[in-house]
Design a protein around this nucleic acid. Structure first.
Lengths: 149, 149
DNA sequence: CACCGTATGTCAGACTACTGACATGAGTCA
DNA sequence: TGACTCATGTCAGTAGTCTGACATACGGTG
């Protein structure tokens, strides 16, 4: 089975890609009217839940490189959604904070994102959602297990 | 629950994004030595299973726009992995075919991709994999349900 | 037949994220 | 103290994908 040809219809890798593609499309569709991208939103959401996160920490949380997050933060800073100190108090880490304006923009976006997530899970029983979490966490752990080798 | 603040740790949307990020990273890591990208591979795999697919059909199967697939096909054609007729026999559709060289490249890549998928599912019992397929298909259907509205 | 909606292939420009590279600061250890 | 390792912030260049736009071809319907 796992040795044979990959069957697209049943391959979990393919199905996972299809799901994330559909999710991404749906998210972008509701965020576009707000002038936001998915990474954009992820960054603000992370800052709301854990104020003072640094550039690198935000990058890890949003699953992009710290270089990508850096240019995003520069944009967000220019638009007045976040603030960063000009100089680091310790080391090179620049803790980022949400501005009131940024918090307002986040609330709009958060409602939109939430509606997509609710729609995605409409048909799923609570037990199925629990199972899904468990399965996805297992996949993540397995995928990352090989990295340190 | 679904009304409150999104908890990153338990949000299935976030978990899904994390999983696809990990999968993508792992895939790119094994494909890079072969000089291939994920979409690259998807295209060849689709052509192996369903020869004669058109540009637009390949794009849908690989979850990119037909514009993106078009530039990829031009590259693949230049490198001698696929062939397309210069003119359409009917309509504008140009059926694409894998060359022997493309088939060889695909076999290398396929083995690499398969190994990642096997690793990802290492800890998952067959029933869990079946459940995962069912859950992901449900998510996809729900996400797409709203598009035609 | 003419018309309209849909699908396709393609070109061009813009955007996003990535890799590579560098300098700087913190922590560890001999 | 000095050397080494690691993490961070940032700049620059590159690659992949996207949106916008256009011409063309098919299919149905008036």
């Amino acid at each position: 089975m796992s040795q044979g040809v990959i069957e697209l219809e049943t391959s979990l890798g393919y199905l996972l890609k299809e799901t994330s593609s559909a999710l991404r499309t749906a998210m972008e569709a509701v965020l576009r009217p707000l002038g936001m991208t998915m990474t954009h939103y992820s960054c603000l959401e992370l800052l709301a839940q854990r104020p003072g996160l640094s550039n690198s920490e935000l990058a890890r949380g949003a699953f992009v490189t710290r270089q990508s997050m850096n240019v995003l933060l520069q944009t967000l800073e220019r638009e007045g959604d976040v603030t960063r100190p000009a100089e680091a108090r310790v080391g090179k880490v620049l803790p980022t904070q949400l501005t009131p304006a940024g918090r307002r923009r986040l609330e709009e976006a958060s409602a939109a994102v939430r509606s997509v997530e609710v729609r995605m899970l409409r048909d799923l029983a609570p037990e199925e959602q629990t199972a899904a979490r468990s399965i996805l966490r297992s996949m993540i752990a397995n995928l990352r297990a090989h990295e340190e080798a």
